[in-house]
Structure formats: C-alpha cells, structure tokens
Design a protein around this nucleic acid. Structure first.
Lengths: 143, 143
DNA sequence: ATAACTGCAAAAGGTTTGCAGTGAT
DNA sequence: ATCACTGCAAACCTTTTGCAGTTAT
C-alpha cells in the first residue's frame, strides 16, 4: 500500500501534478474496493467509509491512475467503463455474465501470440486490445 | 438483395412486426453503405440519396436487423456503436486504427477454439464475444 | 506567488422513450 | 378496426468541461 502510494506520488511528480488529499483517498479506496469496479461502486464504497470526492474528481483521478499503469480501464458495452487495480498483476481478459454481472478473468498466452501475429501480417502497430466473452456464468446457466 | 428483403420480411412476420417503407429503405441503405458504419454514416448516406428516416427509426430498425442476425453490432469504446451487414459472411473480429478510424477484419479459428475451451473450463455459457485490437494501421504507423 | 486542483452545475454525445398521429395487416 | 410504426422533442446516462474559489509546491 505504501508502495502504491509511492508509485503514484512518483508518477505525479514526474508529470508536474500534485499529491492532494483527494488523490490519496481515491488511490486508497481503489485498492480497498477490490478487483472490478465502476465509478458508482467506488463512490458508494467511499461514502460508506465516510469519505468523499466529487464524481468529477473521481473521473479525473482515475484517468491519471490509468495513465500511470496502476489501474486498467475496461470498456464495457454502452459506454460504461469499469476499472481494476493492476498492482503486480499481469494482463488478462474477461468473461462477463450478462445476468449477475460477475466478471471472471482468464488469460491465454496463445491468444496473445496470435494477436501479435495478426498484427505483423497486417502491418498493424498494436497499442492495446479488448477481449471479452459474454454469456452466463456457471450459477446463472444452471437455472 | 431480394433475398435479404425476403429474409427480413420473414423475420418481421414471425415476430408480428410490419414491413414499412422506412424499414425497406433502411435495409436497402444498410446494404448499400458498405462494411462498417455508424448511425450517422447511414443517415448521411441516405440523405445523399434523397432518402430519409428519423434517427429514432434508424435505431429501432437497426435493433431489429441485429436481432434477426442480418447485421452485427460492434460496440466501440465510449458507447459508440458501429454496425456491419453480415449477409453470408461469417464471424470475424477487428483491428481498429486509433488515428484514421480504419477497421481491418481478421479471423482466427484458433482463437475461437481457445475461447470455447476457456468457457468449458470455467463452466461458462458463451453467447457472444468482442475481440478488438487497437493501434495504428500500416499507413498511420509509418508517419 | 504560481499554477494545479476541487466541487458544482452545465454541457456533451450517443441512445432511448412518451406521445399523438399515421399506416400495415 | 386493430395495433404496430413514425417523427419529434424530451429524457437518459455516463463522462467531460468551464468557472471561481482553494491548495500544493
């Protein structure tokens, strides 16, 4: 946790940005709220802890956290974004349950390899990708 | 083209929906406008051809075309949707150029296979997926 | 002191919806 | 004669932005 704060502080100072109380609190809550969350989850979580920050500041700070690489932004359908802290974790993609909203992670080096090959063949410079499988999780399928 | 109209008509009647002038025109224009388009492209294309339909009707009709399987909806980041006619074509995914907006298609049976295996392992019932690679196309990379 | 930051409320931007009138079956 | 469809304008929803006041450096 200290570590994360230090890393963010470092990112901020390298970009001539400032470490404010809001940013400290938001980072701490992002780490506390768990794996996958959206802005509302975070807001609710913060309120329950008696903390607050405006939506605008949440969005602005999350953008910096994403930019620093400490948090990933996952674009869902209809322009809703979810976020996930990436501290020391590595890349993965998602299975999204359409009924209960559960998000299951998966990773496949094979898929990564194929992606790179596709890009090579098409002379395409990849900067990122999105790979989501939608459907019903084990629990929701069985009813 | 006749064929497409017949297929849509069939879908409509099976769902107790009606074949209207607007729907006929929209289907025809969807086929004419080409591979990947968004609602604005379609609207502009129609206006250039002296045809028209309200945005609301475009959205409503596209939803039916998607439901009928004749058109695929591709969710892009930030809640913008694009559509592509699927007549007799089969599934593929996309490379999206962040600079010029070009969309390059690719397909990989291997990735499909891996997806199925991931789902089996996680006991997940897949109903669809999204797989996009973002970056810069050949032209845009080289400048 | 400077320039970045914050909250607020307004704006944006794509999509959806309620309604009253129109039209397919 | 029904009941679905259409256009319009308003409503939606998440995210972004302008502004005036606040605060880290």
């Amino acid at each position: 946790m200290q570590q994360a704060a230090a890393r963010f502080a470092d990112y901020l100072s390298r970009n001539r940005l400032r470490m404010t109380r809001e940013r400290r609190v938001i980072l701490e809550q992002v780490l506390a709220v768990g794996k996958h969350f959206d802005v509302d989850d975070l807001l609710v979580h913060m309120r329950n802890g008696g903390l607050r920050a405006s939506r605008a500041t949440l969005y602005r700070t999350l953008a910096h956290l994403v930019d620093s690489g400490m948090v990933h932004k996952v674009e869902m359908a209809k322009g809703q974004a979810r976020y996930e802290p990436m501290l020391g974790r590595h890349h993965h993609d998602h299975l999204v349950c359409l009924k209960c909203g559960e998000i299951i992670e998966f990773e496949s080096p094979e898929v990564e390899r194929i992606q790179e090959e596709v890009c090579r063949r098409k002379r395409f410079t990849m900067t990122g990708h999105t790979h989501q499988i939608r459907g019903y999780c084990r629990r929701c399928s069985s009813r």
